[in-house]
C-alpha cells in the first residue's frame, strides 16, 4: 500500500489513522532516512492513543514506553545500536512479546531481528516536505492491520 504526505501534520494524521486499527501485540517497523518523519508518525499514533505528555525522539534512550488507554505503547529506536546482541541487552524480545503495541524506528538495521508478524512502513523524502509512505505487511495480522489502516485513512481523507 502506498500513501503520500505533504506535511508533518499529515504524517501525524496518517499515524492517527493507523492507531485506530492497532491491537495489543502489534508491531510496526518504521524505516526511512534521517529526518524522514518516523518520529513524527509515532507522535501522531501516540496522540490518537491518548498518550498525555510529550512523545520525543527515543534515539538516545533506545526505548521509551508510554501508558495509554489501550495498554502500553513501546517506541524503539535502533539507530544507536551496533549489533544484534544489544537487542538482548535492552530486553527487546521481552518487550515485543510483552503484549503492548510496538513501533520500531530504524528496524532495517537488523533485518534478521524482526518478529514473524509485523507491518513495515517505509518513509521516503521527496522535495518540499512531500513524503511517500509505503506499507508492506509481513504475515497475516499485519495484512489485516494494513487493510484497516488503508480504509481508515481513506475515510478520513
Amino acid at each position: 500500500m502506498k500513501l503520500v504526505s505533504h506535511s508533518a501534520e499529515e504524517t501525524k494524521r496518517l499515524g492517527a489513522a493507523l492507531a485506530a486499527c492497532l491491537q495489543p501485540g502489534d508491531v510496526v517497523v518504521l524505516n526511512g532516512d534521517l529526518g524522514a518523519g518516523k518520529t513524527q508518525f509515532v507522535q501522531g499514533v501516540a496522540e490518537a492513543l491518548g498518550v498525555t505528555g510529550e512523545v520525543t525522539s527515543p534515539t538516545f534512550n533506545i526505548l521509551l514506553t508510554y501508558d495509554c488507554a489501550s495498554g502500553v505503547l513501546n517506541h524503539f529506536d535502533l539507530y544507536r545500536l551496533e549489533s544484534a546482541e544489544d537487542l538482548d541487552d535492552i530486553g527487546y524480545w521481552e518487550v515485543l512479546e510483552g503484549g503492548g503495541v510496538s513501533f520500531i524506528e530504524w528496524g532495517d538495521k537488523f533485518p534478521s531481528e524482526m518478529p514473524d508478524d509485523y507491518l513495515e512502513v517505509a518513509i521516503t523524502s521527496g522535495t518540499d516536505g512531500v513524503r511517500s509512505i509505503k506499507a508492506q505487511p509481513h504475515s497475516t495480522r499485519a495484512q489485516e492491520l494494513c487493510a484497516c489502516w488503508g480504509q481508515v485513512a481513506e475515510e478520513r481523507a
Partner: peptide, 15 residues
C-alpha cells in the same frame, strides 16, 4: 570496548 567490533556508535551496555 566499543571499538572492538567496529562500533561507530556506542553499544548500549547493560551487559
Amino acid at each position: 570496548f566499543h571499538a572492538r567490533f567496529g562500533g561507530v556508535v556506542p553499544e548500549i551496555a547493560s551487559r
